[in-house]
Amino acid sequence: MHELGIVIEIIKTVENFAKKNNITKIDTIVLQIGELSTIIPRYVEVCYPVAVDKTMMEDTKLKIEIIPGNAICKSCNKVFNLIKNNGKCPDCGEAPWELLSGKEFLIKEIIAC
């Protein structure tokens, strides 16, 4: 359950961003979480209302976009999802692959009024 500390970090970053850009009211914040990151979206959602309590983001909405954990097979160039295929290329088995996406954990954007 490390998500609370992480959500507090997100709030700090967004608050700094808002200050710099003279934004006083935020409607929604959009996060991108990779399937292979160590962050569990459901826990982020649970922590969010607690973490934003009494901050400028108190009444904001949270939107999470999931980024698939995809890799490209080094021998046959097939792009496949690592989780669905158990870390192996579905076409040629255990060949080495290169990670394309899925480790991200980004604050994508905020929707301000």
Binding site: E9, T13, N16, F17, F105, L106, E109, I110, A112
Partner: peptide
């Protein structure tokens, strides 16, 4: 219409890093 979207595209750990 009254809303604007501001792109941040920053890693959550960016500030700490």
């Amino acid at each position: 219409e009254n809303f604007r979207i501001l792109e941040i595209k920053e890693s959550v750990f960016g500030d700490n890093n």
